[in-house]
Write a protein that binds this DNA or RNA. Structure first.
Lengths: 213, 213
DNA sequence: TAAAAAATTGACCATATGGTCAGGTTTTTC
DNA sequence: GAAAAACCTGACCATATGGTCAATTTTTTA
């Protein structure tokens, strides 16, 4: 039979072998897309890194766009999380501090994921635009209300909550996305745990003080 | 004679026609590179946007990499400027406020330039790494000393000056580089002058308060 | 253990794209 | 106003790369 329909794909589905191969492919693809962008990435290199021939890669993912979408899907799940600490009766100082630490950890531990995401945004988010205008916007609107509440109660300085989120993302992701530049001005060749500790402390101090906390 | 050596290229050199054509090419290239990245950009599209046949484009710039380097060169000049306001005897509040406003203006007026730069960084700065580790690092080290001075004199809160610069770049460029995401959460289809006014005020307030100013 | 399903693979193809080139035209120079 | 330099261009080529396919092997199922 010629190549069967690559039906399942949705996590948890598919045979044991499919599970493992798709995992390896996605991991390899994240690296390649992070380093080269969508156009620059080649199926050949993804296959090579995943340790299988190109035609086998095409057995699991029909097109490059499909691989890309799958990688983005994974990444979005990481992105969405971590706002749990921001609730009406949480301590603003602690909640924001936690959020910053969590985002910073993501930059440190999954820089490639962050870069693929950044690249997608940089090019106008052709693939995830709907998600941004839907789920993400709703989430931000929700959390913005919480912050407005804190401000109304006089628990922190008046800050535009949506712009605050934009700032938090920018401040934390810059360490992954633009690591080269950060390393250059810090005089490092790579960012180590110590650099990340310092960076986290800096961002927390700047933002918390900036919010009057 | 076959294609003559494209000798000059350094601004100000070359005949009248060359001046104008190279200008048109660079402008077109900035747009194309911003939208598609280096690999995604095609010489055909750059030529189309610049209003000349592809072979003529190759008369001025031998290779795509050459066009890219020229575009980056232009952009770096924009990037370097604007730190003038940061001097030992300036008012910290005013100096940083000015710098933020200037960087914000750059994001608003030259978003494509910012994006090309961001894309280059995102992919490890293969072309401008030396510049970052040389000129930029030196500049930042210099300005960091100024800020250290302000701190020592008790004129602002103690903040790691190098990380502060990283933060300032992140906070301001995010509005150009990730405009799609910003628009999504703000519920806009594009950022207008009003949005930029608000964003500038927000970043200034956050940072100045964050620096105890 | 046999049939069916899933997985694997090398050979192959179509297309897109960066770049070349020879010959022509315009502009500048003296 | 003629020689030289600069500029322009359509046709062409080599290569890289996404994707296909038919044949084969491995795994699962009953």
């Amino acid at each position: 039979m010629t190549a069967a329909a690559p039906v399942p794909r949705e996590d948890g589905r598919g045979g044991r072998i499919r599970q493992q191969q798709e995992g390896a492919i996605l991991q390899a693809a994240e690296q390649v897309f992070a380093r080269a962008g969508f156009q620059g990435a080649t199926m050949a290199e993804i296959a090579l890194r995943a340790g299988l021939p190109k035609s086998n890669l095409h057995y699991y993912f029909g097109t490059k766009a499909e691989v890309y979408r799958a990688v983005l899907g994974h990444i979005l799940r990481l992105w969405l999380a971590e706002t749990d600490s921001i609730t009406p009766d949480a301590d603003p100082r602690e909640a924001l501090g936690h959020y910053i630490a969590a985002k910073m950890r993501l930059s440190a531990e999954r820089p490639d994921a962050s870069r693929v995401f950044a690249n997608e945004l940089l090019h106008g988010a052709p693939e995830i635009g709907d998600y941004l205008r839907g789920e993400l916007r709703a989430l931000v609107a929700d959390k913005a209300q919480v912050i407005e509440g804190w401000i109304a109660e006089g628990r922190m300085a008046p800050v535009d909550p949506v712009h605050l989120f934009i700032s938090l993302w920018a401040l934390t992701q810059t360490y992954a996305d633009f690591e080269t530049q950060v390393c250059a001005v810090l005089g490092r060749t790579a960012l180590g745990p110590d650099d990340y500790r310092r960076a986290t402390a800096h961002v927390q101090a700047l933002v918390l003080r900036g919010c009057g906390l």
